[in-house]
Design a protein around this nucleic acid. Structure first.
Lengths: 343, 343
DNA sequence: GTGAAAGCGCTAACAC
DNA sequence: GTGTTAGCGCTTTCAC
């Protein structure tokens, strides 16, 4: 069954294609009767207009590309969901690309999105996108989310990463911790660098020397979280507190700590980056750095789609930074607390 | 900056468009020298071929539509991720639509996917898709995931829902539980119906009367899970065990139970549907019904893309059912167990 | 080995 | 109020 085109509808009715097109576009010049007949015929024949043809004709596509590193990550799933809702509300769609933090995959996907003539691209860029990727993006409306890629001085919606880690670390310091381990992503990613800065700034503000703390940097994965946790706890002088700086690392850490009974917060306090649903349940509640990801993605979506609609040649690059909040739960306590469950 | 077309490249080189096209397609008739010149020029000018034009010309699109109810749900996030990987490996892309379990949204999205002339559609259908949706789907290669919609007798990849709940319930029965509460989705969804059948079958196999159990059915949402949990626990004769039959309901239940200390499994045992990462951590480990979602989605993706490639007019509808497994952890114990923590 | 031209499905400018 | 026509960017005959 070949696809049925406007011409098929026209022929079936003995009228011209343009009349069909106009009728379906509800053009005022077409008589109500003709409109009705066309409507009916196209329904009967199962006519569905071709977007590719419309796009080629000059009409812009209603497709928005979304490039994210991962979907298992609560963070990005939330973002995708929020953006999908935005798009849906305004008649746009999402083309989803998972780049896996690989710049070659990223490059390929961006190229394909450009080839598809998407209306715009929302991207969480990799640490250092290829030159070609940057060049292509510059020819398309786009926004960066969370991470900001320097060579692209474009619109950006993100989180105050530095402040976030600063607050989390300060919380631990105020409880009296000095031997603190930071487990986070490398500084290759702008977010990783900013978070580490926040950590260090809190330390120096409290006069804690670099020799008292431990910085374990690596890929922002679950597995690294597990490995880093083991490394920290089995050190000669284990930390009395751990703070993480990436969502997946938090998962890995919590997994390594098991259910944490008798260990957290008695032997070690924990502040987790991100605030997934389960953080409330982990051994009575994981103290977390909560990021308003949903709100961030929604406002990003609204702003971006508005910009697409009004086809503004963005004068000033728009930047939006939203703050994180510290949610104190049961996994943080002063160091050397009594151990209620024990012999 | 208007988009640069093949004609622009041709003009810049003083050759014909067709030559450009052939050179880029690596046509053997074109001289190596010309190919090199074209390659270089198109790189210099930033030429990116137009997919819409290619599609209109008759070439099929490399876009695959994915329709799911929700992305926050671990289940569907995993599916989307797995399918995205499959697509990526074979040069396809995902167009993501979140239907929110709303048949009107579903209808609109399917229509738009058809309009975009996608190569195929992977769908987790709503309880009862509109007639129009079914008709449209029949004109496009498609496969159903998890839920099977009756009117569409098409290819389907799913889980043995009935057996899954049967096993979970049997586990509780074998521990000695009789007053069991089932919290699940309504029977409007085929999956909901199958799961409830499994629950009931286990009961009747064990000779447990319907008057001893409690069936709480509703929407498969977090909020319903919370509400249902409260309802069950505050009943005149509260259950000694609870089994859930939907991922989000499990989350809601666990939230309602708090960290569960002193309550689970002493007063009530819990079997949770689904096996998200946090299930290992919930109060020492949540006994779960684990579904191999990732494998399911991957095999679905592989099979479907293969079918798209080889353009087979699917003779026999393909069906694949994969089994769930019961993972026993700490939240299930015989009824009336001693209460180690308490006076 | 390369060029010219037709046509995919649609819309908009121009007839009548 | 409706028909005719051109052309979007590409591939693919067919011609040289």
């Amino acid at each position: 069954v070949g696809t049925v085109t406007a011409r098929d509808v026209a022929q079936a009715l003995g009228i011209a294609v343009s009349t069909v097109g106009r009728a379906l576009a509800d053009d005022p010049r077409i008589s109500a009767q003709t409109k009705a007949r066309v409507q009916q015929a196209s329904l009967r024949l199962g006519y569905v207009g071709s977007t590719p043809a419309r796009v080629m004709r000059g009409g812009s596509s209603k497709l928005v590309g979304l490039l994210i590193p991962d979907l298992q990550n609560d963070f990005y799933a939330t973002i995708a969901q929020a953006l999908s809702r935005c798009c849906d509300a305004e008649g746009y769609h999402l083309a989803l690309s998972i780049a896996d933090d690989n710049r070659d995959v990223e490059a390929r996907h961006v190229r394909e999105l450009v080839s598809a003539r998407v209306a715009g691209i929302v991207i969480v860029p990799t640490a250092s996108p290829r030159k070609e990727t940057v060049a292509l993006l510059e020819g398309v409306p786009h926004v960066q989310l969370l991470r900001r890629c320097e060579p692209l001085d474009a619109d950006w919606f993100g989180i105050n990463d530095e402040e976030c880690l600063f607050e989390g670390t300060r919380h631990l310091l105020e409880l009296g911790h000095r031997q603190i381990a930071y487990i986070g992503g490398t500084t290759a990613l702008p977010t990783g660098a900013a978070r580490l800065r926040g950590f260090r700034r809190a330390l120096s503000a409290a006069g804690v020397g670099a020799d008292e703390v431990m910085e374990i940097l690596g890929p922002t994965t679950f597995d690294f979280g597990v490995a880093a946790a083991r490394r920290a706890l089995s050190a000669a002088k284990p930390p009395t507190a751990i703070i993480t700086a990436a969502v997946q690392i938090t998962s890995g850490l919590m997994d390594a700590l098991g259910s944490g009974l008798g260990l957290v917060p008695d032997r070690v306090s924990v502040v987790g980056f991100g605030d997934p649903p389960w953080s409330k349940w982990w051994n009575g509640g994981l103290t977390s750095l909560r990021m308003p990801v949903q709100e961030l993605a929604t406002s990003c979506g609204l702003w971006f789609l508005h910009r697409l609609r009004s086809k503004q040649a963005s004068g000033e690059p728009h930047t939006s930074i939203c703050p994180a909040t510290l949610v104190v739960r049961a996994t943080t306590a002063p160091p050397g607390s009594p151990q209620p469950r024990g012999e």
